[in-house]
Nucleic acid binder design. Structure first.
Lengths: 417, 417
DNA sequence: TTAATTTGTGCGACTCACAAACATATTAAG
DNA sequence: CTTAATATGTTTGTGAGTCGCACAAATTAA
């Protein structure tokens, strides 16, 4: 691969994205595009299409983009020669004419190293561009050993193990953190149950150790990008991921790209106010969504209602109980309603059509999905012809790791022009 | 002006934007860019910069974009020849060297026809690209005569009057409607106090009558675009307009473009739920922001508190009263708090830094601004270095008309690639 | 065996940003 | 008054990229 291929090329990301380039004129927010950037941009588009569509022939790509086949050839030929794409066998014959040669990512193309950092565990894996997970390792972190050294040792060992199995140099390291992070500098702001990690400059640490471009973001955004590049979000222009558990998280895909606020943060749906006269939240405000739609709220209400095992209740057990006890059914309904309020507010404001649910709520299964769908539909104004759909997330572990890798993929494939 | 200049060229907008082009391949959402489109795109960028910066020389534009002066010359020369831009005199000398020749929009360039349609009046004007308002007409519509014919007659007469004074063929007609509209087909969904207008296909009507590209949108979006192209929003990458009066409206500028939901609507901040157990809203839900932050809510509470003239109270009088009566001060505080909640929720979720306030609340002046700023700051988490700023809107009439014109400007200058 | 159809690829034309040199207009220094 | 220095704007060729056209290749249908 020559250095001209800046997309999905390791060299293009080695420069720290925090340090602004000093030689060029400072970025004033305005930009003019040159013909040289067009090729780069179009390459990203074609690769995005392949992610969205799966294996696709040059002719089909040309039809969908409105260009000529010759243009597509010009774009994909260098990528094939670089080993990123390969021609695969057509799985179905389509009548007369020369059979198409679908293009797809090579299994031996450069992979991405994925890290999932939680207070109680460190997961690492290698993710191929086809979404395949390999070299997966999970290291539990005992409550008594939650100091920085333990986490960093597990991290470094896991990444080393993954990188050793990479068929080529990895494109980078994507890290999903179960806690608050500052995406701008890749540091950990706070991690519940692991206070020692607060303030750790994780990105710089990994970049210095492995000399690979590294991106650190929080768990919901990883779920979003996992769905977008490798899951149900492929081809969806607009959707949101909701993580509802002991805390509430949210990430949005709008207008064909992940929404990041003007300053990289934003999307704090859990701390929007839904109860004017509600109780005090951990953030100091009153009536945040988090005060009425978390697992903690559910368990408190269950205790008040005298439900058995209230302190260990979760959605799965609540659904089971609801079949037997009317009080549990009523609580399930309230829980779903309260969760629906935050989602409906998001829908009313930004109009995404699809919601993918993770966290405790996902454990409620189809019953919970039905409750949620009903409540959200009652609260949000869906347009005719564009019904609101609530999906339950699939495998949270896998999607998170794929999403950590998706952080790197996004960095490379998002069209910024 | 040759037909090659597609930006700010009338011909480029004559095709109805509702009817998809039939000759080309259908738009699949994917696109590939050619060198010919680059020129178009860069032309838009340069014109956006001029709007944002005011009169600017070629050399300055080149510096800000990081390109060479020769590139800027290539872009602006055709625009000067077409009469869109002119060289103006430098207002200040800047030391040694050949003096710069700032470029600015010609006062005799193609203008935009602006319409502001309210239940009680029809305003029309001609807006130049420098923001100048001319041929302004305001026709009151008496309550007894609110049928379609009255409105349409006033509209047609006003547009005729404006177009007659245009130095060149107008670029289009932008319509701001005080009511609900469907931006996709430019029809009126509902207008409070003018039920006869519901369902009127206003865009098609005007396009058929005047053979000019027409865009219809609701009042808050016009305010947004008025601020963005001609007002305080110039150069702001992220801001929101809040219209707080008898109803609540909101429009957002995010990531350098106006936010429209996936289906053209969205931004219904007034109907997000902020009071879980609140009263029933006109939309059928409970506890919408509109139930606790409108002029109606204020007057009801004022009546409960026994304030004089409660049924005609507005922010201006409330501020006056608050200097004399503690009860009025308490109500002002509550009013500001409730309005702040919706704004803070928007800020928490999407992180715009700047809010421009219109409607009744604007009449509260600096006192109201201080109350609002304090309440919002208490509820929203501003980042250090990026404080949240609340502006009072300037002249609502002028900005609305400029914003109606801004609908056409946006259509032409938004970078879609 | 032949025609029709579809896929993928060369080659020249065109558009555009870019690089280098040049003409122009002003200030500062002698 | 003359000359150097500096900044602006234009002219001319070059390279990158897509497009239009023609052509080879592979498959099906007659």
């Amino acid at each position: 691969m020559t250095s001209k291929n800046k997309v999905l090329d390791h060299a293009s990301l080695t420069a720290r994205n925090s340090t602004p380039v000093a030689d060029g004129p400072e970025d004033s927010g305005f930009a003019i595009f040159s013909a040289t950037q067009i090729g780069e941009s179009n390459k990203r588009r074609v690769l995005q299409m392949l992610f969205d569509l799966g294996p696709t022939s040059r002719a089909e790509l040309a039809r969908l983009t409105g260009t000529k086949r010759t243009t597509i050839t010009g774009i994909v030929q260098p990528l094939i020669e670089a080993g990123l794409l390969i021609e695969v066998d057509p799985n179905e014959k389509r009548g007369v004419g020369k059979p198409a040669r679908p293009l797809w990512f090579s299994a031996s193309a450069a992979p991405v190293c994925a890290v999932f950092l939680m207070p109680d565990k460190v997961e690492t894996a290698l993710i191929s561009l086809t979404g395949g997970v390999s070299a997966h390792r999970q290291v539990p972190i005992a409550p008594g050993k939650r100091n920085r050294e333990t986490y960093i040792d597990a991290l470094v060992a896991g990444v080393d193990h993954a990188l050793a199995q990479a068929p080529r140099q990895a494109l980078g390291i994507g890290v999903a953190v179960g806690g608050m992070v500052d995406p701008a500098d890749g540091s950990i702001v706070a991690m519940n149950l692991a206070p020692a990690m607060a303030g750790l400059g994780l990105r710089d640490l990994l970049e210095d150790r492995f000399a690979l471009p590294t991106i650190v973001d929080h768990h919901p955004r990883a779920l979003l990008l996992g769905e977008r590049w490798f899951g149900a979000g492929r081809g969806m222009g607009n959707f949101a991921v909701i993580y509802a558990d002991e805390v509430l998280g949210c990430a949005m895909y709008l207008d064909g790209k992940p929404f990041r606020g003007p300053h990289g943060s934003g999307g704090e749906l859990g701390h929007t106010i839904v109860d004017l006269n509600g109780g005090t939240c951990t953030c100091g405000k009153r009536g945040c969504w988090e005060t009425v739609a978390t697992l903690g709220w559910l368990r408190d209400r269950a205790a008040e209602a005298g439900l058995p095992g209230a302190e260990r209740l979760d959605s799965e057990r609540l659904v089971d109980l609801s079949a037997q006890m009317p009080a549990a059914g009523a609580l399930l309904s309230r829980y779903a309603h309260n969760i629906a309020i935050g989602i409906a507010n998001l829908q009313t404001l930004l109009m995404p059509d699809n919601f993918i649910i993770y966290g405790d709520v996902r454990r409620g299964g189809e019953i919970m999905q039905q409750f949620l769908t009903r409540e959200i539909s009652g609260l949000a104004a869906s347009l005719p012809g564009n019904p609101i759909t609530v999906f339950l997330g699939q495998n949270e572990q896998t999607i998170t790791l794929q999403g950590a890798a998706g952080l790197i993929v996004s960095k490379q494939l998002e069209i910024e022009y």
